[in-house]
Design a protein around this nucleic acid. Structure first.
Length: 591
RNA sequence: GGGGGCGUAGCGAAGAUGGUUAUCGCGCCGGCCUGUCAAGCCGGAGACCGCGGGUUCAAUCCCCGUCGCUCCCGCCA
């Protein structure tokens, strides 16, 4: 009873043919005298009919069929009577008159129905992921993921890239995310780390002369999860020699174009827009703004200076900023709604959210009493119309931007401003190379330590590290960071200076990634690359809001895999073999 | 580490100012049914209302704690 056809391929052309189908009982409708089974496999659904002409044995067996039994059906392809054609089914014009059914395996009562419409909670779906994955909804997403990976290989290989593997048991390196550590039994007391990305190895491959490299690489970061990130994820890791940032941009644009064309039949623009980091923060309050909607910030500093409103005036005088958002047509917002928005701003460090409403006669409500004399200048400058709501955050430039940016995102969601069918790509360029670490009171790499500063800053990096712009770029899609990359520093002298600025001693550098620095003593080519996140890309392409929806077997937000229940305890002997022992938990120690 | 939300039959939800027997749909079990396609009709079983404590004559409901899931801040070069 091996299948001769799948459940998605039969049409009127096959009428009269004897076929065998294998699949799962998707639906089961017993009308007494006549019985319908919807048989499902990866390819579709085909209706099987057992009518009164069927043998008694077959009728008896059919009565016992339950949801998700795995069965084989032998029968004849019949045309459905005209009034019984189902136009919603690809195979809706035919049905199989069953002659023989074999139960391949039985199925217990299901924890939830295998159905696109099943509304089981995620927790339960993950615990029974194999059932969840049977649904057409999940099958489509996993299939698209495959298509994207395949298109990636097709495109990059056609452009002369080699797919090269790098180790997953590597040396633990400092900085960045926490490493997952893997103890070595043979070298008891020593540990490997799982890679946070193949970064160092791909750079060494450039030193080795492999010019154009890619890898669809699993990466591991031991940090708290979110909807768009978890402990392990997959990136399309790309590195090239003898290239500029412009080369990386155009390659990535073509790659994305190819992926969207092949897997979604969607045509992207040939070039993506660009914003500098500074501009993006200044205008949208985010380094990953969703450009599917407008809501651009307006600067209020000049007017604030002229006003008598101490909070605004003070913020500007102390070198901060007053940023403004004009929300069209939302003057009807209640105090409750506005205070909800204020809560959002406060999460990001704003001390408050000021507001006014634009009415026909001028400004109303909120802080408007401080601004009546400036009303027409304000509406002109901001381009605000009666019926608009004005929102203000006064703080340091960075807090004002970030918190108002959070409000912009929130309004985008609440007002449904973003067209779910649009794909808005955006390059964020000119990132600062260093950021000030306020806890440690020192400069830290904004991205990673192997990034080349832009030429004009090289000579004077040390003078004001905060001003140094790196050869750094991110690719943003619909408000998500989906790729990040840089032109790397291949000059040992510049590299040493960068280490010095971030307070990284030469001995420490030598100890941690001396192998990379050593390789750079042997004629490293200038090189750079980028790494698009496969999970996030597919998440956006499928319209999902968590990467868990496009990962076959994801971890939950607690870093647990609900299906196999990992991580788990191990035999203490295994721990002993590794030369390790567990410390009691802190709470237990306190007792 | 911190904040918000949720937790009620196998699943998804409803519920009341704190007051008899906790409601509905799906699924499950039994029966009827010859054209359904989320089949229909009749009947039935199934819940220590996440767990622990407190307030109260009385708690699924209020309070405290705890566990689980989830969203967010921190964190994620």
């Amino acid at each position: 009873m091996k299948r001769t056809v799948t459940c998605g391929e039969l049409t009127k052309e096959h009428i009269g043919r004897s076929v065998i189908l294998n699949g799962w009982v998707h639906r089961n409708r017993n009308h007494g005298g006549i019985h319908f089974i919807n048989l499902r496999d990866r390819y579709g659904i085909t209706q099987v009919v057992i009518d009164e002409d069927a043998s008694e044995e077959l009728k008896e067996l059919t009565k016992g069929l339950k949801f998700e039994y795995c069965i084989a059906v032998k029968g004849i392809v019949k045309e459905r009577p005209e009034s019984m054609v189902n136009p919603d089914m690809a195979t809706g014009s035919i049905e199989i008159a069953a002659e023989e059914i074999l139960i391949l395996s039985r199925c217990e009562v299901l924890p939830f129905m295998v159905d696109e419409k099943s509304d089981a909670k995620e927790d339960l779906r993950l615990r029974y992921r194999y059932l969840d994955l049977r649904s057409f909804g999940m099958q489509r997403k996993i299939a698209l993921r495959h298509e994207v990976a395949f298109a990636t290989r097709e495109y990059l290989i056609s452009r002369g890239f080699y797919e090269i593997e790098t180790p997953t048991l590597i040396k633990s390196t400092p900085e960045g995310a926490r490493d997952f550590l893997v103890p070595s039994r043979i070298n008891a007391g020593k540990v490997f780390a799982l890679p946070q990305s193949p970064q160092l190895f791909k750079q060494i491959l450039m030193v080795s002369g492999f010019d154009k490299y890619f890898q669809i690489a699993r990466c591991y970061r031991d940090e708290d999860a979110r909807g768009d990130r978890q402990l392990e994820f997959t990136q399309i890791d790309i590195e090239m020699s003898f290239v500029s940032a412009e080369d990386v941009y155009s390659l990535t644009e073509e790659l994305m174009g190819y992926i969207f064309r092949k897997s979604l039949q969607f045509e992207l623009p040939a070039k993506f827009q660009r914003l500098t980091y500074r501009e993006a923060m200044n205008r949208y309050g985010s380094d990953k703004p969703d450009l599917r909607f407008d809501l651009e910030f307006k600067d209020f500093n000049e007017i604030a200076k002229k006003s008598d409103f101490g909070v605004f005036k003070g913020a500007v005088e102390q070198g901060g900023s007053v940023k403004t958002l004009v929300v069209p047509g939302c003057a009807g917002y209640s105090r409750k709604q506005i205070s909800d928005l204020e809560e959002t701003a406060k999460i990001y460090g704003a001390k408050g959210l000021a507001w006014m409403k634009v009415a026909d006669g001028g400004l109303e409500g909120g802080i408007s009493k401080f601004f009546h004399p400036l009303a027409s200048e304000i509406t002109d400058t901001l381009g605000a119309k009666p019926g608009d709501l004005l929102l203000f955050v006064a703080d340091t430039w960075s807090t004002a931007c970030t918190s108002l940016g959070a409000i912009r995102n929130r309004l985008g969601k609440d007002l449904e401003l973003a067209d779910p069918n649009r794909f808005e790509f955006l390059w964020i360029v000119d990132y600062p190379l260093f950021k000030w670490d306020n806890d440690e009171k020192k400069w830290a790499p904004a991205h990673h330590m192997f990034t080349m500063p832009q030429d004009r800053f090289i000579d004077s990096m040390e003078d004001n590290p905060g001003e140094v712009i790196g050869n750094l770029y991110d690719l943003v899609l619909n408000g998500n960071e989906i790729a990040s990359g840089s032109i790397r520093c291949h000059d040992p002298e510049i590299q040493k200076r960068i280490f010095r600025i971030v307070g990284f001693s030469e001995e420490e550098a030598e100890k941690r990634f001396g192998f990379l620095l050593e390789s750079f003593r042997y004629g490293p080519p200038p090189h750079g690359g980028i790494a698009p996140g496969l999970d996030r890309l597919v998440m956006i392409m499928t319209g999902e809001s968590t990467i868990r929806e496009v990962i076959p077997f994801p971890k939950n937000t607690m870093g647990i895999s609900p299906m196999d229940n990992s991580p788990s305890n191990v035999d203490p002997l295994l721990i002993k073999d590794l030369g390790l022992s567990w410390l009691p938990k802190e709470k237990e120690q306190e007792k």
